[in-house]
């Protein structure tokens, strides 16, 4: 069954159809035209990277390492006099661009989302592959894939109207009251907007991607592994946990990483439920947070009012940080999935 959900490393099939390579006709108009198209793709990526680097360079000089280690984000006094100078770059007085709050928020919300989503997605995928009658599989797959296509703002809308009040009025007061002795669960219950709500929304959003990938990995596995284990007298669950899952471990890790990468870069839904925290690290699981992607949207409007321009460029630098992180995660995921493809 072909998946609608694109997964990293999908286009690594062997080069099958090459009618042109067998003739000198590769110099034809078609070749030239399509090579222009490919050139545009390449140019686009290079341009965007160069642009980001060039554009953020003054911010990189101004901020140094503090973009990763400081918690204070302050575009400086726009109504004052004088300026604040670091490494030859001038910003408004008092300007400091620490991104630690956003970095921590990004990583924590994505990690917590994985804590919720991974067991759920594994359960769903295993059920689809090993438990669902054939005629229920197609509609279930269709529903799961439909879920992957729901726009971020619609998840955000649902999060704002349904999830956040539920967390703020019921979940958070209950948990902080009864389980407050556990670190990171006690303290202020807050308003419902925060790390917990963001992680739930993210978990729901990335789950379909994970289900689709794990399902495909499981289906690609020879049925004989499962059947042999069953024939040896194990229960179906033992066959899955002792025989099937170990053989697809890297593929599952890859699926988790792909989902993790998505969660890191998700913007609108998180922006709508995360609470827009600034200058403070989360105190508990219900604290308001902020993520890099969300802060780029919500702070760009403020940043552009910085006369020195450093605030805008620092925001772009944050975007660059996010870009590097998601590139790293995606690369590792691809390597993992390719390793899985090769292993059988």
């Amino acid at each position: 069954m072909a998946s609608l959900t694109p997964t990293v490393g999908g286009s690594r099939a062997r080069r099958a159809a090459v009618p042109f390579s067998q003739s000198p006709a590769s110099g034809t108009l078609a070749g030239v035209l399509t090579s222009i198209a490919a050139g545009i793709c390449l140019l686009l990526v290079v341009l965007m990277l160069l642009f980001l680097l060039w554009y953020t360079w003054p911010a990189i000089r101004y901020n140094g390492l503090s973009i990763l280690s400081d918690i204070t984000w302050n575009i400086g006094n726009q109504y004052g006099t004088g300026s604040s100078i670091h490494n030859g770059v001038a910003a408004e007085p008092g300007a400091e661009f620490g991104g630690l709050v956003f970095l921590v928020g990004t990583l924590l919300s994505a990690l917590l989302a994985m804590v919720f989503a991974v067991p759920l997605a594994l359960g769903v995928a295993l059920t689809i592959v090993y438990r669902l009658p054939e005629r229920l599989r197609l509609p279930t797959n269709a529903l799961i894939e439909l879920m992957a296509g729901i726009p971020s703002v619609v998840y955000g809308l649902w999060g704002t109207i349904v999830l956040v009040p539920w967390v703020g009025n019921h979940v958070a007061p209950f948990v902080t009251h009864h389980f407050g002795f556990i670190p990171f669960l006690g303290g202020d219950a807050g308003s419902g907007n925060g790390l917990f709500a963001a992680a739930i929304v993210l978990a729901i959003m990335v789950m379909p991607i994970m289900v689709a990938t794990v399902r495909d990995v499981l289906l690609a596995q020879p049925k004989s592994i499962y059947e042999a284990s069953m024939a040896l007298g194990s229960t179906s669950w033992q066959a899955v946990t002792h025989a099937v899952l170990p053989s697809v471990r890297t593929g599952i890790v890859g699926a988790i990483l792909v989902a993790f990468g998505r969660a890191l870069g998700e913007t609108m839904a998180v922006l709508m439920v995360a609470g827009n925290a600034i200058n403070i690290l989360p105190q508990n699981i219900f604290s308001p947070i902020n993520t890099i992607a969300a802060v780029v949207v919500s702070q760009l409007e403020s940043a552009v009012s910085d006369a020195s321009g450093v605030a805008q460029r620092s925001l772009a630098e944050l975007a660059l940080v996010l870009f590097v992180i998601s590139l790293a995660v995606n690369t590792i995921a691809r390597v993992a999935i390719r390793g899985q493809d090769r292993s059988h």
Binding site: L44, T267, L322, F323
Partner: peptide
């Protein structure tokens, strides 16, 4: 190289694309 650049494009958060075009 082309396939790699497309993989890179997958990793670019959509807000970065918007921001790039806004400035450019």
């Amino acid at each position: 190289v082309v396939r790699l650049s497309i993989d890179v494009l997958f990793g670019v958060p959509s807000i970065v694309v918007g921001y790039f075009l806004y400035v450019a």
